[in-house]
Amino acid sequence: MTSDQAAQGIDDIEYEKPPSNWTLLWGDRMGRWGIIILVVVTVLAVFGPMIWPFDPAAVGEDSSSIFQPPSSAHWLGTDELGRDVFSQFLMGARISLFVGIMATLIATVIGAGIGVMAGFFRGPVDSAAMGVTDFFLVVPALPLMIALAAIFGQNLLIVIIVIGALAWPRTARIVRSQTLSLRERQFVPRARSLGASNARIIRTNITPHLLALIVANTILVVAGCILAEATLSFIGLGDPNRISWGSMLHFGFVSGAVGRGAWWYFLPPGLGILVVVLGFTLVGQSFERVTNPKMRGGA
């Protein structure tokens, strides 16, 4: 047997690659439904407003065009100003998703940052960070969001910052406890004995092990942020120049669509919120389950 043959033999061995997280997710029934929901909604949100012919802000010509029930032209009828509800619905999907995802990114950066620092450095850094975290965990979030939005004014950026700045405490807690256990693993002292700095250890040894946890948690946080945006906008603290599902429900409520029985106006945005939040919840929970071997098998 020549060395060439030996090498050939090794190459012939078929390694069983561990399935990727996405394969596992697709194999999980709840995860699959969640992915389908999110893909459909994203496609609607991105391409819908480009295709649908009506301008969501164009008001009707006279009083006969207001609160019209669904027809072949206006699939979801018109609102209190005669605007097309379906085009608002498509535009609302965009804003709701955009705000939810951007706020979550802010929350994840703050939460994961604080969590890693607290867990890695321990001692006074940890006590201080967790003191702040616990404070924000017990402060009732919605009243605080309302106060902040009322003080800082109403535009999309402020809504995103306000929601993101209050959605991080749980991420910080979860990341911290995982970091605490990671830093006790063998590879940390080994990396240190090779001369690695704290920053390098956090970057190359700690963070990669946290990623699955952070992703699962992030997906769940999006669900909460979308609900938060809807609630703030419903209360009338959203950006008045942007249509979101929450603001549609705000105007529907204030204009008396409920009393008039204009179901085409207040049913779709609520269903939209429900479906998207459910989609993120399903994917997040399923991701948590398939990436955490301890939870596999159990529900």
């Binding site: 669900a223 809807a230 609630t231 919840t281 529900a299």
Partner: peptide, 29 residues
């Protein structure tokens, strides 16, 4: 069990104010 879990997740995803609006519509109108 799984039916209860799925139903609960759906209900947990509902915006509270919208549930209220639906009930106002149902029992008021």
């Amino acid at each position: 069990d799984s039916a209860t879990v799925v139903t609960s997740l759906i209900f947990w995803s509902l915006p509270t104010f919208w549930v209220g609006m639906l009930l106002v519509f149902t029992f008021g109108v």
